[in-house]
Design a protein around this nucleic acid. Structure first.
Lengths: 352, 352
DNA sequence: CTGAAAGCGCTTACAG
DNA sequence: CTGAAAGCGCTTACAG
């Protein structure tokens, strides 16, 4: 005698609810009590129920969706590389999408989440993207593992996330400059709203305050993580009566902009001014002079994100929903003691 | 009033048969008269009937596999961006893989091709990769559309490929330098075996020969598309008795290496030496000085590759299996007339 | 939030 | 070979 057919009704009977209720859970409907949903999901999982749809098509290759807001930075590509590496090692397919490349129509999150489910995907990784809590809910309701990497906005407490120790990194950068003897240290940040950017700023401020150095408002600016931000900020800084002797840029791209503008104005780095970047991408390594930079373990961040998905998928109980990987300062040739602490005028004469 | 729902019953009514009969045809049953079957099939096709199953899963979401050998270059990322853009516009999913990230086990091409087929993928795009003819055959046998972008080795004649007019680009770069008055022009190429690299070299040679300028062996070198190649080549060039007054680098990364080494040796660009890159990535734009470079339509190449797949997929008859997109020279600030055509010694004195 | 009842669209079993 | 009738499994609309 064959086991009774694995229908939706059979699952319902097993859980002790009605068929319509199971139907709702399977389709990610809203109107199911949390507790009921959990019991049904458990039974669905235990019995291995597959909808007629799923039954028809062969069990698909395990796959994970990866969403970037853009691929136009060394940062993104490195995180992607980390994901790809882990994916290859664990036989996962990676379905990539880039929101900034999306043509007009933004995808409805409910629809997207349902499709993920229908196609049997293992989860989704969202990188540097402004995924709102509303969008995340569509996934949580369907129990699709989601991991965000360096979210623009801090994610709701129950969402898994991967980041780097930005605060400590900011502090390390500023401390390094302070130890070299700098007192006038500028900070050029990323988007003011971005979580990581704020953390770096606060690390910088913490270091200054610990050293008894006041935080000067004109020394702090913000902008997108692009070299143009560094160029613009550097122009303003050099126009100050009392320009800084060192600059801490919140990304290597920004730092490269600073470097370009410095060269244009004949400010030598590190002789006339010290410069620290953030990210530790090859850009920093290959620039001239090679940039002192706070290195983020970007590959590792990508790997961790995927490994979070895999662990959730395998039903592992995960206690901490946030992984923060260590940054570390890599000292290269763009930082040196200040030329003369007393003579800011000397710096500007040099520039003429 | 909306059109009546397109059910199996509706189709039946239209043909003048019963629903069960249509059901049999849809499911490929035997017990239907040939003539009836044909009429039903015609109606099915005409009305565009889709079973609830087909209707539900948005046609198993069309997807294309994209294979890169590596993602560590502005070139690759830009091509990928082009693919992503077109994919978003045409509602395709992109399944990414990177061969250099592949853990030890190389995937068996037969297996890979079969999986592609099983999962109903639309095709595969292979970028800058050394995909052998043997591997391609596994796909051709299964009628899976494959498009290669800038293959390392020229693909078999019947494979679709997308590239840029490398020869013309090389010629344009060298011509530009010749027109400025340069006669001692070096070429730093990419991997000697790479098709695109050879084309650029031959374009360069053609321009020199047309101008009656001999091709000097010591002025021509090759290496990976990385900045270190530029550094090394530049060192050798500057050590020559008769160093060139201009350098044409086969990629922007290589050119950036040349630039760095020039700065280290106090060779000013373009005053002491002119420099032309290739690719036209933002690296070239943002460098200091901004680099004159042969721009490749990388986004467009990505888009074209995908559009090739889509056209093949839709059964379109395609006459030409090779698309070659135009490159064009973008003159920026790294090129200028030679300082003194007569005094190579002058250049070297300058460098001391 | 839940489920009895009705409904939907397709398929099956079988009489003709 | 065909189709009326019964059946299946899931979903919907809605009363409680």
């Amino acid at each position: 005698m064959r086991p009774p057919k694995l229908t939706l009704a059979a699952v319902a009977k097993e859980v002790g609810v009605s068929a319509p209720t199971v139907s709702k859970v399977v389709n990610g409907r809203q109107d199911v009590a949390e507790e009921t949903r959990n019991r049904v999901l458990a039974a669905l999982h235990r019995t291995g129920y597959r909808s007629p749809l799923q039954r028809k098509s062969p069990p698909a290759q395990q796959a994970v969706e990866v969403v970037f807001d853009s691929l136009n930075s060394a940062y993104s590509v490195e995180v992607l590389n980390g994901i790809m590496e882990h994916a290859a090692a664990s036989q996962m397919e990676v379905i990539l999408s880039v929101t900034s490349r999306q043509s007009a129509s933004p995808v409805d999150p409910e629809e997207r989440a349902q499709r993920l489910l229908d196609e049997g995907r293992s989860g989704m990784i969202v990188v540097t993207s402004a995924f709102g809590p509303g969008q995340l809910k569509a996934f949580q309701r369907r129990r699709i593992p989601v991991v965000v990497v360096d979210p623009l906005n801090p994610p709701p407490g129950d969402v898994f996330s991967v980041g780097a120790s930005n605060w400590a990194g900011g502090k390390a950068a500023a401390s390094h400059l302070l130890e070299l003897g700098h007192r006038r240290i500028a900070y050029i940040g990323g988007p003011a709203a971005a979580e990581c950017s704020q953390a770096r700023l606060h690390g910088y401020m913490a270091a200054l305050m610990a050293a008894g150095v006041p935080v000067v408002e004109e020394y702090v600016s913000a902008g997108p993580f692009r070299s143009s931000t560094g160029v613009a900020a550097m122009k303003s800084l050099l126009a100050l009566d009392d320009p800084p002797t060192a600059v801490f840029a919140a990304s290597d791209s920004i730092a490269l902009g600073v470097l370009a503008e410095a060269r244009r104005q004949n400010i030598r780095i590190p002789d006339d001014m010290s410069l620290v970047g953030f990210d530790g991408t090859t850009q920093a390594e290959e620039s001239l002079p090679p940039l002192t930079s706070v290195s983020q373990p970007l590959l590792e961040m990508g790997r961790s994100a995927l490994s979070f998905i895999l662990r959730q998928r395998s039903g592992e109980e995960i206690d901490s929903r946030r992984v923060e990987l260590a940054t570390h300062l890599v000292v290269r040739e763009s930082t040196a003691p200040p030329r003369t602490q007393q003579s800011p005028a000397g710096l500007r004469r040099q520039a003429d």
